[in-house]
Amino acid sequence: MAALTLRPVRTAVQADDDQLAELDRSTWSTLHAVLPKPVPPFDPFFGERNPPEDVLVVEADAETGGAARIAGYLRLVPPTPLVANAHVRQIRGLAVANWARGAGVGRTLLRASFAEARRQGANRITLRVLAHNDPARALYASEGFAVEGVLPGEFFLNGRYVDDVCMGRSLGPA
């Protein structure tokens, strides 16, 4: 794998739709997905419930001089519309392109999400992850997330029940 140079994390724009939709399809796995594998015709990535302003992206340049491509994304949203919950942001999607794995893309996106959540006035961030997704759980733990709850057997995937793990961390004062 050629070394990658990550560009600064930015907010997605509508023009990213095709790349992000392809990234989602190419990274689909039973390790993290609770929805069935996408089949044609494919839906657009962005929609009413998933606008570009909720998505952080990071692009990478290959040292070989190739054009920058989206290496990963993270979706950051309020967990509910309740005023009493406005101090929290939730990660509802994190994907890293297969060709960019091991280059720090996930960690870069997580750290950018902390800054963005703080900018939005949050002092806490949460996420949910499938119990069998050991690589993601290890990454989250290394970035300060702790398990705050487990929903046993919440999903039935590939013929077995899988726990849904709720994780969270403080961001400090908003």
Rank of each mutant, 00 (worst) to 15 (best):
M1H: 01
M1P: 01
A2P: 14
A2V: 13
A2Y: 00
A3L: 12
A3Y: 02
V13D: 01
A15R: 13
D18V: 14
Q19M: 13
L20Y: 06
L20M: 11
E22K: 08
D24R: 12
R25K: 03
S26N: 12
T27S: 09
W28S: 02
S29W: 06
T30V: 09
T30F: 08
L31F: 05
A33L: 07
A33E: 14
V34G: 04
K37M: 12
K37A: 13
V39D: 08
V39Q: 15
F45Y: 15
E48A: 15
E48K: 13
N50L: 14
N50E: 11
P52T: 05
E53R: 14
E53K: 12
V55N: 07
L56F: 10
A60V: 01
A60M: 02
D61I: 08
T64K: 00
G65H: 01
G66H: 01
G66W: 00
A67R: 06
R69I: 06
Y73G: 01
L74W: 12
L76A: 09
P79F: 01
L82G: 03
L82D: 10
N85C: 15
A86E: 09
I91V: 15
I91H: 09
R92C: 11
G93P: 08
A97G: 08
A100Y: 04
R107D: 07
T108D: 03
L109F: 07
L110R: 09
L110Q: 08
A112Q: 05
F114K: 03
R119G: 12
Q120L: 15
Q120R: 15
G121K: 07
A122L: 10
I125Q: 06
T126G: 00
L127R: 05
L127E: 02
V129W: 05
A131P: 01
A131V: 04
H132V: 05
D134V: 14
A136G: 11
A136C: 08
A136H: 04
A138Q: 15
A138R: 15
A138T: 15
Y140E: 03
Y140C: 03
F145H: 07
G149C: 07
V150I: 15
P152K: 03
F155A: 11
L157M: 08
L157D: 06
N158Y: 00
G159I: 03
G159Y: 02
Y161W: 10
V162D: 05
V162N: 06
C166H: 14
M167A: 05
S170A: 14
A174N: 10
